[in-house]
Design a protein around this nucleic acid. Structure first.
Lengths: 148, 148
DNA sequence: TATTGTTATACTCTATAACTATA
DNA sequence: TATAGTTATAGAGTATAACAATA
């Protein structure tokens, strides 16, 4: 169990895991705080962000978020009740339903995005512009090849 | 509303925000999956990880996680019921309660940490060793000065 | 009086299973 | 028969408020 015992992975890989995980928790805390300040849960803010520039079927939205379609029904129910989203039957498929933002929803997600950027600025300013670009590049490569 | 309209922040800062947020959601998804594979919620796994090498009072644990103490009571109740944690009255302060892991809890968190590292390895392998070190350094600086 | 923790309550998030309607 | 979505149900996570015990 000692840190110097043999491992499957190189030691510095473990430290990178820790850095990634701790950074992610810090980012999630910031997002959760911004969401709460706008009377949203983190999941609701995420739904609004995904729908900011497109309309999606319930199943596509659920897949995007990694949630069950029944979970999606509840999320959209509550957002619709608050006037942030709407549903319409799909014209292509009588079974399907498209979800999209109302103007109130679009306004809220725009404010949310701006608040998130403001909230993360103090963190990002710990790095120089060059380092910020380098970090962005490394993260994009970690996520997968950027939109080919 | 156009992407090229004037902003408070430099354009590339917005892209770094997106990269940080998207990376964080990807990491959280991996952590949530690992937790679920071990019959834990993400929060439970996090509690176990925090207590892996220390014992903390309920309030300290709640502060660590950014949760209310009443939320902490429920989380510890359920973990205790599963034999992963224990509570004992503090010797220093008759009002306080110390929380700590059982041996089953320590075993589970060790497996969880290993699973997380394995789960993130494919992502990290998209970068060279040098890049991994650079990324780790940048993230640690983003989080704040590393333990002085 | 202030602090530590628990309990009561309510709401959101989440999944599973059963169901309806359409393909 | 298979797919899209909703509803019913249950449990976890979360916060607020009220409470007991201790400092």
């Amino acid at each position: 169990m000692s840190p110097s015992s043999d491992r499957r992975c190189a030691p510095q890989a473990e430290d990178l895991v820790d850095a990634l995980v701790q950074t992610s928790f810090a980012i999630m805390a910031a997002l959760t705080r911004v969401a709460a300040e706008n009377d949203l849960s983190l999941t609701q803010l995420r739904v609004l962000a995904i729908l900011a520039d497109r309309r999606l079927r319930m199943t596509a939205l659920a897949d995007f978020l990694g949630l069950e379609k029944s979970t999606m029904s509840g999320l959209v129910d509550r957002a619709e009740k608050r006037g942030l989203m709407q549903r319409t039957p799909s014209v292509d498929d009588g079974r399907a339903v498209d979800a999209f933002l109302t103007s109130a929803g679009r306004e809220l997600v725009a404010k949310g995005r701006a608040d998130v950027a403001l909230s993360l600025t103090p963190l990002m300013e710990r790095l120089t512009s060059t380092e910020q670009r380098r970090l962005q590049d490394l993260l994009e490569r970690l996520l997968g090849e950027p939109a080919l």
